[in-house]
């Protein structure tokens, strides 16, 4: 009896929700993107122009792509180039477009015991940390940032292991706080760094090497795989995000006076 009642209740709720479908778009993105506040600026403008409401779900890159693969969201905005290509190649996503990029930076204790500040490339930075065996804090959560960090270790021909390399399995903010507490090095996206900088003692030590650039791709979930995703809405959002107006807003978005993202369209590097 109870199960029946539950089913009826659920179906009633569902009917109420299903009707709003075409005007609702579910966007999965990474925590760092959502936390930067950029989407809070952009999405209301998109909604005003198209009357499509966007539900922003902030998770790690791995989770975001997974939600897209399962059809639980309509569109994803992530920064993990290799994983994005695999996602599209496997037929889960379609209509990928580059929206913008930001960059990663290396931060660590002011005293810089590994001497990273003298490096010319990020590979050299990692090699120095590796040689000094000073603590390095890794996200260790399969996020886009974590994936990029692992890729950079690989490019530097060093394998991060040993007690100095600590995987914490936490978000970027927590990871920064942990690095701060134990005087460790870590790699962070600039947005989170700007939000936390004033609360931390660790310093920005290295930036600007091209391998640290971090492109963001927006991908619609493939309607051939999940026929009931809001594909039209997704395409509208992709077009809008790459439109000159939105690209201008992205370029003008600042935290504490610093530009965070570089628009990709007409800026291709």
């Amino acid at each position: 009896m109870f199960r029946k009642a539950l089913l009826v209740a659920v179906s009633l709720l569902v009917m109420g929700q299903a009707s709003a479908d075409a005007s609702l778009l579910r966007l999965a993105t990474t925590t760092s993107t959502a936390n930067s506040g950029l989407m809070d600026l952009l999405l209301p403008k998109f909604t005003a122009e198209t009357s499509i409401e966007v539900h922003l779900i902030a998770v790690g890159t791995g989770k975001a792509l997974r939600l897209g693969r399962e059809g639980d969201v309509d569109i994803v905005l992530v920064h993990a180039r290799a994983a994005e290509d695999a996602f599209v190649d496997a037929g889960y996503g379609t209509d990928r477009a580059e929206v913008m990029y930001n960059d990663f930076i290396i931060v660590g204790p002011e005293t810089d015991p590994a001497g990273t500040a003298k490096s010319n490339t990020v590979a050299e930075v990692l090699q120095r940390i590796h040689a000094s065996e000073k603590p390095f804090i890794s996200r260790g959560d399969d996020s886009g940032t974590h994936k990029r960090e692992l890729f950079l270790w690989q490019s530097a021909n060093k394998s991060p292991d040993g007690s100095w390399y600590r995987e914490v399995g936490q978000g970027m903010g927590k990871t920064l706080q942990i690095a701060n507490e134990i005087d460790g090095y870590t790699m962070t996206d600039r947005g989170t760094w700007l939000a936390y900088e004033s609360k931390l003692d660790i310093q920005l030590l290295f930036e600007g090497d091209p391998p640290l650039f971090n492109p963001y791709g927006i991908i619609a979930v493939n309607p051939e795989r999940h026929p009931d995703v809001n594909y039209t809405g997704a395409i509208k959002l992709i077009k809008w995000m790459t439109s000159p107006a939105a690209q201008k807003m992205i370029g003008e978005f600042k935290i504490k006076g610093q530009q965070l993202f570089v628009p990709s369209v007409g800026n291709a590097s």
Binding site: V10, V14, Q17, G71
Partner: peptide, 21 residues
């Protein structure tokens, strides 16, 4: 509740209903 799950057709994931459930 996920789309690939047994109750996926209800499209409940990421709604207040799912949270309430």
């Amino acid at each position: 509740l996920s789309r690939q799950g047994p109750m996926g057709d209800f499209k409940l994931l990421f709604t207040q209903t799912a949270m309430g459930l």
